[in-house]
Amino acid sequence: MQPGVKRIKGVSYAKYGYLFSIPFVLVFLFFSLYPTLYTAVIGFTDLKGVTTTSFNFLKDPFANFTGILNNATFQKSFVNTLVIWIINFIPQLSLAMLLTYWFTGRARNIRGEGVFKVMFYMPNIITAATVAILFASIFGYPVGPVNSILKAFGLASFDFSTSPWASKLIVAFIQFWMWYGYTAIILISGVLGINPELFESAEIDGASRGQAFFRITLPCLRTILLFTLITSLIGGLNMFEIPKLFNWNGGPANETMTTSVFVYAQAFSGTYLYNRAAAASMIMFLIIVALSAIVFYLMRDRYEARANRQARQAKRALRRARKGAAA
């Protein structure tokens, strides 16, 4: 597809391709690949204790992994993570779709569309730590704005932080509130990228707007929807600030503890069980790798892969022809 500048006057520029990639490659190996392998190794050892750096491999190499998988708190945090993600994602996607349906209607000219988008996206750029503590204050007990409202309506004040379901719902609501604007903007720009001729010919054929939405828009958005789903799930599996800070360390009784909060608590508090935390991280790592493999196949430049394959075949044919000529 892109020829690249291979040679000018017999000079090869290929070495600059390697040269300019060196900073990335070195930093990636040093700060990314090595820590990943190191985490995996620690998962098989007895490394624990606050200033410990030396370790021995365990006799039963998978002891940490089986320990984590059988750990009731880890199981609970994993279920919590999924539950909180699901009760945030379903309304988030539904609202984003509704906004997309409204904001991409060609007949409608929405006043203040830009201002609305700026407002919807705003919570996303605010520090999650601040958002968590702000909501903790808003739902505070006995003193807090929500309880003031309850009092104004003559209702009894309610301690949200001790109720498992209220805590879970609020954490999910915060995630929803921070991310629906992002999802809506992604979907809206996805719809605007669809070939308008499709809609025009549907209109000529007498399709209603609802029909056009379900028969054209949704199928065309399939890739973007799947991409949104998986990236949101990966983000959800790493949820940390809100569950850690909204209700101190995933309370009450670990009801809002997520896997990230669990890993943090194992490794950086109490007995500093780095090995257990590393095993838990690696389990999450494998799940995320599987999910990102799906994204990888979605996003891979199909045309480019095909073009490269053709180029390789052409080169091979040329070489064969040359060999034939020589013989």
Binding site: P35, Y38, T39, I230, N238, S281, M282, M284, F296
Partner: peptide
């Protein structure tokens, strides 16, 4: 391939 993998999941090795 590595684009989507968050650094958070390998934080233990990074910290050590």
């Amino acid at each position: 391939a590595v684009m989507m993998i968050p650094t958070q999941v390998t934080s233990i090795g990074f910290y050590q």
